[in-house]
């Protein structure tokens, strides 16, 4: 008993590298659940604004209101496909790492980052050309708030992917231990599928 107390009182570091594989799996399971709960709560954030958009739409006699135009749907579709495609490349990257094909992982991640940035550029182009303003109409309010929030998420995702890429180049992730990458990929998927909903809401419906 005395020995145990001693160990409890002055435990050694519990850093990532010092862990055995079993310990790592345990920590990973905890973090994975926490990360899922985070994505869940983040999706509520979008859901609330989507509810607001639908509510404002139901309150308006015509949608979008007179004098306001939707963003261009054709370019929007191209932009959406860029983002959806980046989800596929992110998925490929993840698989390459699991299969220990490191170079493939790096290339696919770089492509993902580029596609994500392209999407942001497309958004910027759209913002510059749309016939609506944030404060001018309820359509503008809903559109700029939701796509702005999503754009912010994409930006965070791009930075997140760059950070994981640098970390993996520094040798942090192995085919056995890559929770940070799993989280980044999941986050990227999350950002993707939010756009599935927003694309429908603002370009099609």
């Amino acid at each position: 008993m005395a020995v145990q107390t001693e160990a409890l009182g002055h435990g050694h570091g519990y850093g990532h590298e010092a862990m055995t594989q079993e310990e790592y799996v345990e920590q990973r399971d905890l973090r994975f659940l926490g990360f899922l709960l985070f994505l869940f709560t983040d999706s509520i954030f979008f859901t609330a604004y989507i509810f607001a958009a639908l509510y404002l739409r139901s309150a308006a006699p015509v949608w979008p209101p007179v004098g306001v135009e939707r963003p261009d749907v054709n370019l929007g579709a191209v932009n959406a496909i860029i983002l959806f495609g980046s989800g596929i490349t992110a998925h490929y990257a993840m698989h390459r790492l699991k299969e220990s094909r490191f170079i493939g992982y790096v290339w696919f991640t770089i492509v993902t980052i580029i596609l994500g940035s392209l999407f942001l550029g497309g958004q910027a182009y759209e913002y510059a050309h749309i016939h609506a303003t944030w404060s001018g109409s309820t359509f503008g309010a809903a559109f700029f708030t939701l796509t702005g929030l999503h754009g912010f998420h994409v930006l965070v995702g791009v930075v997140y992917l760059i950070v994981t890429l640098l970390q993996s180049v520094a040798g942090k992730y192995t085919p056995e231990r890559h929770f940070g990458l799993t989280a980044a990929t999941l986050y990227w998927h999350f950002v993707d599928v939010i756009w599935v909903v927003l694309f429908f809401l603002f370009y099609i419906y």
């Binding site: 145990q4 409890l8 002055h10 435990g11 079993e22 310990e23 345990e26």
Partner: peptide, 16 residues
């Protein structure tokens, strides 16, 4: 049971 190791006496969750 997934956190069996975290419960072991020699594996405190953080040092004092």
């Amino acid at each position: 049971d997934t956190i069996e190791i975290l419960r072991r006496a020699d594996k405190p969750i953080h040092p004092a």
